[in-house]
Amino acid sequence: MRLSRCDLCHIDLDRVSVRRGGQQLLQDVSMHIHCGQLTVLIGQNGAGKTTLIRALLGEIPHSGSIRHLDSAGRDLAHLTTGYVPQHLAFDPEMPLTVMDFLAASMTRRPVWTGVGSRVRARVLQALKEVSAEDLADRPLGRCSGGELQRVLLALALHPAPDLLVLDEPVSGVDRNGLKLFLDTVTRLKERKHIALLLVSHDLRLVREYADHVILLDKNVLAQGSPGEVFASPAFNQVFGAGTEAETEGAPDAAPARTVPSGKSAGDPRPDVSASRIVRLTSHRRDETSRTPAGPAPDRNPADEEGDGGSVPGVDGRTDPGSERESSASGIPSGQEVQN
């Protein structure tokens, strides 16, 4: 399926397919990821969400095209992609501070010779943008999940990306941490010219924050506003009938709880335990089609969620000094990264 043109600058995926080891992981995925919008990718484990991210990052070969287009449909320059991974697989005992880590990515001078004052200032500024400047000299392995996620976000924003890919953690950060993270992302979206793609496992938060939702199961089953996608037959088919009703009916003040693990073999349904009046930011939606579902193919265990470790939600990015919600102490129960 080819999408029709729309009038925002966007990342254009046209019939992207990925085949690996004899299995079709993605089949003709077409979508637009618009600048200034939070596009959220949902789907069950094995639906190809991680595969799609890896294709976007150029990690795995794919057919079809991924282009960065302006509002007139012309190709823009090279696409700079920022990436906040779901988890890091590093040794937490490693003598490496947040400063070392960020400096290593901003300069060629080897950080074992120290960090120069100019680079130090740049790193501090980058951390300040995500309200994490107090973490500069902390060893990376001693950061909580939420803190680490903020550090990763600071890193992903330098150099300034056209597309920011956020792989939401499946464990290690509670809902409050995720909310802070999404608040940060929302502010980012309003201030910077960035297209945001989030893989999320928390449908309630998706409802609340997403501008555009894409339901994936090897191909695009449905896309549109959260309300539209959540009401679609494909959504009920994937997440089970009644999910929508649950979402509407449950009390608002759901206890903060960890998002279900992407790896767990248990109930695959994401957390939809609470309702919220859906805040549908109605903005210019393209007239992109909402593809009706093909039959849901068999789950494919080969793809999805990498090696599912723990990390973190990023929390708030605030205007310097304005809010305190995103300070390190604002994360109620971050946990140490252990991989």
Binding site: L88, F90, P110
Partner: peptide
């Protein structure tokens, strides 16, 4: 040589995916 490759190696050892994306 060690100095030239260190930062890239460091990022790779923290997260190969992240390093690749950069």
């Amino acid at each position: 040589l060690w100095a030239a490759m260190y930062n890239q190696l460091l990022l790779t050892s923290v997260s190969p995916s992240l390093a690749r994306s950069r």
